[in-house]
Design a protein around this nucleic acid. Structure first.
Length: 469
RNA sequence: GGUCCCAUCGUCUAGCGGUUAGGACACUGGCCUUUCACGUCGGUAACAGGGGUUCAAGUCCCCUUGGGAUCACCA
């Protein structure tokens, strides 16, 4: 194990969304590629907004995607004493100070500054206070350098620099004594020996403040890699109004985790013209250099295409397991004697793009009383088809080879002896068996259904036609 | 508004000074086919604009424009 240490540090204020998932994925991939350690840390210093449900939702999302972590989950709420210790250290060294300004005062000053076209930064009122004010609530602020430049070489964006005068004295501890994100993230990344911080673009402007903090605390500064944002179709930051943003929502909509992983990794990262990557190939090929600099639009169509690809090429037995909940939702419990689910799935794989479509497509196999689509029945289950269906059922009863190939031969021979074309028997058999005019290849359907069930369904259709006539 | 970041087909992207600017999704035409699909062959479609540097610029520099991020006792 190398000393490469990566982390994903979500705040538990909601589910795992696709942007967070991609950040987690990049961290996971790099950790696995370099033989490093992947840490999961829950940033729950904001007690008011953090919830246990969110924690669970995030863990569930990570697990579904197969992004297992090597260390953690650590909770920042468990580490408050550690943060206090470092705040104290800064205070003693004069690198932090008590600020007695109230939130209301600060808010007023900000508004005033904005109204006058100025910068809404802290004016330093308490920066040089010599005395403590007993009994008055205070926050702790970091004493940032007023001049100079803070620069860093971002692994994605390249050289970035900020003038320190743009940065103000950020609060590191609230008046209730709890620490604030920009401080805890530095303490944790330093004490957890994180070597590279891969995170969203939205943290870019926090980085110089954090670097200043690392330096004040005497910690080595990690490497940073800021990955671009994910946008919606209108190029605005991806949000619910663009559609589902929760990773688990995609599972529920019938998406496979490998499709989601493959889609996410290609949104912002590339390896030449390659599009399809197995988990192993990703670990092998992933590099930070492959990450692009610009924000990308989330494209549901491409995700759908990838999902279709993975369903088409997936192992039927595994798909069967994943399909079970979707079938149960539809009132189907594939029993041992019902059509073999693996076989059912094989006939459906290349025409289902989601597990939802797969489940819907599998339904007719398990309905003993197929519901005939009205238009399909009107066209294909008529008195004109009756003789052919009757003879075909008879013919089938004598048939031996019930493989798709054998059934195809049986059909062909039937057509020859009857002097008809495939189009005169195929469609009505299809409706008799499936109830609709679109279905898997009819030979495959018969093979899966088996001779007895096929004949039963044919006879039912014959009865249906007779009853109608 | 200040600061920071970004800019190749509608979308994701390849390109790392000399290419007929390539691939993928989507769209679309043909083929395959008993249905629907799959597959396969083809097509439409991009270097935001303007200045430089260079024998040569999508590739390097500057400006403009456009987009995004961020400016909390949130993370």
């Amino acid at each position: 194990m190398s000393d490469i240490r990566l982390r994903f540090a979500p705040s538990p204020t909601g589910y795992l969304h696709v942007g967070g998932a991609r950040t987690a994925l990049f961290n996971w991939l790099l950790a696995h590629k370099l033989g490093g350690t992947f840490i999961l840390r829950i940033e729950d210093t904001d007690v008011a907004r953090s919830t246990e449900e969110s924690v669970n939702a995030i863990l569930e999302g990570m697990q579904w995607l197969g992004l297992e972590w090597d260390e953690g989950p650590f909770f920042q709420s468990d580490l408050f004493p550690v943060y206090r210790e470092y705040v104290q250290k800064l205070l003693e060294e004069g690198k932090a100070y008590r600020c007695y300004c109230t939130a209301e005062e600060l808010e007023k000053k900000r508004e005033l500054a904005m109204a006058q076209g100025g910068k809404p930064k802290y004016d330093g009122t308490c920066r040089d206070l010599s005395e403590e004010i007993p009994g008055k609530p205070y926050v702790i602020r970091f004493r940032a350098p007023a001049v100079g430049v803070t620069a860093f070489d971002d692994l994605v964006k390249g050289q970035i620099s900020f003038n320190n005068e743009e940065l103000d004295d950020l609060i590191i501890q609230r008046s209730d004594g709890t620490p604030i994100y920009n401080f805890t993230v530095v303490i944790d990344d330093a004490t957890m020996k994180v070597s590279t911080v891969i995170r969203g673009d939205d943290h870019l402007s926090n980085t110089p403040r954090q670097i200043l903090l690392y330096e004040a605390l005497g910690f080595p500064v990690p490497r940073f890699a800021h990955v671009p944002m994910i946008l919606g179709s209108d190029k605005a930051r991806l949000s619910k109004r663009h559609g589902a943003t929760s990773v688990m929502a995609y599972r529920d909509m019938g998406y496979l985790p490998e499709a989601m992983i493959n889609y996410l990794v290609r949104l912002g990262w590339s390896h030449g013209d390659d599009e399809i990557f197995s988990r192993e190939e990703l670990v092998d090929k992933f590099t930070l250099e492959g990450i692009g600099k610009s924000a990308g639009v989330f494209n549901p169509d491409k995700l759908l295409w990838l999902n279709a690809h993975y369903i088409k090429n997936g192992d039927p037995a595994r798909l069967a397991q994943l399909l079970l909940p979707f079938l149960r939702e539809r009132g189907v419990e594939p029993a041992a004697n019902a059509p073999d689910l693996d076989g059912v799935i094989i006939t459906l794989q290349e025409r289902a793009r989601t597990m939802l479509e797969l489940a819907d497509g599998a339904l007719f196999y398990y309905q003993s009383e197929v519901v005939y689509d009205e238009q399909a029945a009107a066209k294909q289950l008529t008195a004109a088809q009756l003789p052919n269906l009757v003879s075909f059922a008879k013919q089938l009863a004598t048939g031996g080879d019930m493989t798709p190939a054998g059934i195809e031969i049986l059909f062909k021979e039937f057509c020859v002896t009857q002097g008809i074309k495939m189009g005169q028997i195929g469609p009505s058999v299809r409706v008799a068996l499936c109830g609709v005019t679109t279905s898997p290849a009819i030979y495959d359907v018969i093979a899966v259904l088996g001779k007895d069930e096929t004949i039963r369904r044919l006879e039912r259709a014959i009865d249906f036609i007779t009853a109608r006539a």
